[in-house]
């Protein structure tokens, strides 16, 4: 009986402590320091584990592909399997190389200043949160709220206290994620796009109802003013389904993101962006051909080659604060 009473007392004390911690963190973000220490300590460990686990993980996933060689004879079959296993190890590097190349292409087009990082850990909280850790932090110039991109488009934004060599990124499919966006086709139709959880399409709310939403239209980020979390023109996704308006003021639609959040390896944090970027220049297969950085030298004598600078008509950077990022304090 005494034991039971003591256990109840301890339970009460622990629950009170938990409540105190929550209150402190809620009211003043007082536990930011603790989180910073935690990311300083655990960040490098996660990075280390990732280096070991990553190749093993993709080796296992490669086992599923071996079935296609059944028609070949037994020896050859085994040989292929062996070689495939060896190849898988380099496949990891190849995949990362491809992702990096796409990333550099996008960042180069936009003339973003970026810090490339590797994804080291995934958040969860029973699947409620959609977050990743990356292996770059304040030492590399990363600050809170900066935009994170991959070669395909918008990945998310930096949240929470940034550690010296780690940062936490809230992915765009997190339910608490919201970003300002602009339709690629219409001249200035702005809205807000928000995450709906893993594996679900994102939701678009378009504030302008003179523009008609159509399936296949693309979205890019629309900056939320100076100091805001997003840089302009980063591709977000494509409209897949338009919800009938039913006399409502705002139009809504489902959006398939360009980024596959389940297979992120290399991402980049945008630490600086040019004042203005040509509209829709970063979209995949956009109607207006995207300017490339390749320099083509024509053989005609006497004429100098055009050079790599895209002839962009500078558009005034938007100052309207049409976005609201639902953010939490820590």
């Amino acid at each position: 009986m005494r034991n039971a009473r003591r256990a109840r007392l301890i339970l009460t004390l622990l629950l009170l402590s938990a409540f105190t911690l929550i209150t402190l963190d809620y009211r003043s973000g007082a536990l930011g320091g603790v989180r910073k220490v935690a990311s300083t300590v655990f960040g490098p460990i996660q990075d280390g584990i990732d280096k070991v686990v990553h190749p093993i993980g993709s080796w296992f996933s490669s086992l599923g592909h071996l079935g296609s060689y059944k028609h070949e004879n037994q020896d050859l079959h085994r040989r292929v399997a062996e070689l495939q296993t060896q190849l898988r190890m380099t496949e990891v590097e190849r995949q990362e190389y491809l992702q990096t190349q796409k990333l550099l292409h996008l960042a180069g087009l936009a003339q973003f200043t970026t810090v490339a990082a590797r994804v080291t850990a995934y958040g969860g909280a029973f699947g409620f949160e959609s977050t990743i850790s990356i292996n770059r932090g304040t030492k590399n110039g990363i600050r809170k709220n900066e935009t994170v991109i991959s070669g395909a488009g918008l990945v998310g934004r930096v949240v929470g206290p940034v550690g010296p060599t780690t940062a936490t990124v809230q992915l765009a499919n997190d339910s608490a994620f919201t970003a300002g966006c602009r339709m690629s086709t219409a001249r200035l139709a702005v809205g807000a796009v928000s995450g709906n959880g893993r594996g679900k399409p994102m939701g678009l709310t378009l504030l302008d109802n003179t523009v008609r939403l159509e399936v296949g239209q693309m979205l890019v980020t629309f900056p939320s003013g100076p100091g805001g979390p997003f840089v302009p023109e980063v591709p977000i996704g494509k409209v897949t389904r338009v919800t009938p308006a039913n006399g409502q003021i705002a139009q809504t639609a489902a959006v398939a993101p360009f980024v596959d959040f389940g297979s992120l390896d290399i991402v980049a944090v945008v630490t600086d962006a040019p004042e203005s970027i040509k509209h829709d220049s970063l979209l995949p297969s956009s109607p207006t051909p995207a300017p490339t950085v390749t320099v083509t030298v024509t053989a005609s004598p006497g004429s100098t080659s055009g050079g790599g600078t895209p002839s962009s008509t500078p558009t005034t950077s938007a100052t309207s604060s049409a976005t609201s990022t639902s953010r939490k304090t820590p």
Partner: peptide, 21 residues
């Protein structure tokens, strides 16, 4: 506090305390 999370510290502590008890 293990990165990457961004809910308030103490939420999971509360839940696991009850379950452990």
């Amino acid at each position: 506090v293990m990165p990457p999370t961004y809910h308030f510290a103490g939420e999971l502590a509360f839940a696991y305390t009850v379950v452990g008890y």
